[in-house]
């Protein structure tokens, strides 16, 4: 179902995106980014850092926030900016959910845009990421 931009209003919520990034996904991220800190895939290395398990890389969570926006937006526009402030680690394989809402609708440089506020919430209902995005409607 495509997004009806004309019907959008400030405060509207994005559909929650429920995920559980697993070790395979983390390893795909490491390969793509060519970044291999052992605590991303080696549980002993993660424990040595004081973590209960391997953690989901922060830049991977930025991309998952992007995914939540894209799955809401579809072909109705594109993401101009997305920013993630990392508050807590997320343990690989544990459930997280990306939630968000429209903070502001406005016109700028002749384009219709929206500011979005998003969170990644962990299974203890704590925000692990606070995110912000700007989308531009087609």
């Amino acid at each position: 179902m495509s997004l009806d931009v004309a019907q959008l209003k400030e405060g509207d919520e994005l559909p929650p995106l429920e995920l559980a990034p697993d070790l395979g996904q983390v390893i795909r991220y490491c390969g793509m980014a060519w970044a291999f800190p052992p605590f991303f895939y080696d549980i002993e290395a993660a424990r040595a850092q004081g973590m209960p398990g391997t953690i989901v890389p922060g830049p991977l969570k930025l991309g998952l926030v992007y995914r939540a926006i894209h799955e809401w937006l579809g072909d109705a526009g594109w993401v101009r900016q997305v920013r993630a402030a990392h508050r807590r680690p997320d343990i690989t394989g544990r459930p997280i959910v990306v939630v968000g809402n429209i903070a502001r609708l406005y016109e700028e440089d002749g384009a219709d845009r929206a500011d979005l506020e998003l969170l990644v919430i962990n299974e203890d209902n704590q925000p692990s990421v606070r995110a912000f995005a700007i989308v531009e409607f087609s």
Binding site: W78, R80, V82, R83, A84
Partner: peptide, 13 residues
């Protein structure tokens, strides 16, 4: 060291 934040910005597609 710890990652605090990261961001993608696009001037165009």
């Amino acid at each position: 060291s710890l990652l605090i934040s990261n961001e993608w910005q696009f001037e165009r597609r």
